[in-house]
Design a protein around this nucleic acid. Structure first.
Lengths: 189, 189
DNA sequence: GTCTATAAATAGATAGAC
DNA sequence: GTCTATCTATTTATAGAC
């Protein structure tokens, strides 16, 4: 039975990887189960052997997307808020289409329309993000402000028609985080 | 023909008012044309005499919601950023169900899934918000940072499971805007 | 302009074969 | 576990009567 369990786990992981990417970039409603399954090279019917509903998948996909996004950070991102913000508030992150982007920013207002399990997953993910910011900040308040500048700034920059304004917004938020972390110079190094 | 034009304008306004409230609180996908029309005390069939599509309605509804939200501000909100943020980042605004809330915060990531007309309307609305902040700030950069703290902070506070964290976030963003507006003390009064 | 009725398409979820 | 086929519900949009 061991290889069967492995096979099942691999299928579930392919579905989750597919869902994490599609949901993060297009939200809950625009993505059908059929599309997620095709992208994972499976068919609709197999879906309910792994997840109990589309909403269940969504919650797990957010967790998956966040995990991948977090894991990708350390190598690129040194141990201070300024470098973290520079990475997070980049045009590359904003314009990301294929790699893993941060669901916290890409799906903020989408989560409000979802059930309590999804909201709980999102909240836990944000708490982890805040904890990370807190470990690089001189106070919890500054960590919260930096988190909002990063997540809110990225979310806003994505919806704008006007590329100049979008870039200006990213730069202003980077500067804001810098100021917050310079005020008392307590970077963890 | 005059009274007929008035009648048509009144019907359209009822539809827009209904749509502005419903869309702002529940997003594009969760609200059906049928529901908007019932809420406006009309039936589905009458919809297409006023709007060419659901997406067309959405764009106009965002504009309407923003207009109402902006108009409501002056009376409650004195001429400085701190008071503006105190009003905007309140639990009342966050928990609003019936009155007019700000579509910029409530619909941030929803807009990404919509067509270019909707994005253009959202962008113009944000530009107006930024202009307002700029007139109350000592620099454009600070205005942009305040705007992100307000819109991003409100958006994030809405999705959280954890009421304590949500309140803490609102307070931190209020404090952040205060700091930004105190740094050079150039309130317009 | 507003109504009722309906067309046409989409998508979540289930049933049963292999 | 995965497949094909299908049920069922929802919803955008249109047609035609008043």
């Amino acid at each position: 039975m061991a290889w069967q369990d492995t096979h099942k786990a691999q299928s579930k992981d392919r579905i989750l990887t597919s869902a994490a990417m599609l949901f993060t970039h297009h939200g809950f409603e625009k993505i059908s189960i059929d599309l997620v399954m095709k992208n994972a090279e499976l068919t609709r019917g197999a879906f309910y052997s792994h997840f109990k509903s589309k909403s269940d998948l969504y919650a797990q996909a957010i967790r998956k997307a966040a995990t991948v996004a977090f894991q990708r950070k350390p190598e690129n991102c040194p141990q201070n808020m300024k470098a973290f913000a520079q990475y997070y508030l980049s045009t590359k992150h904003r314009d990301d289409q294929y790699e893993q982007a941060c669901p916290l920013a890409f799906l903020v207002s989408d989560i409000n329309q979802q059930d309590s399990q999804v909201k709980a997953t999102y909240t836990k993910t944000l708490q982890a993000f805040i904890a990370q910011a807190e470990s690089l900040s001189s106070s919890r308040e500054k960590a919260l402000q930096s988190a909002v500048l990063m997540i809110g700034g990225l979310a806003l920059s994505r919806v704008l028609d006007d590329k100049n304004l979008s870039n200006e917004l990213l730069a202003a938020c980077q500067a804001g985080v810098s100021t917050l972390s310079n005020e008392e110079g307590t970077d963890v190094s």
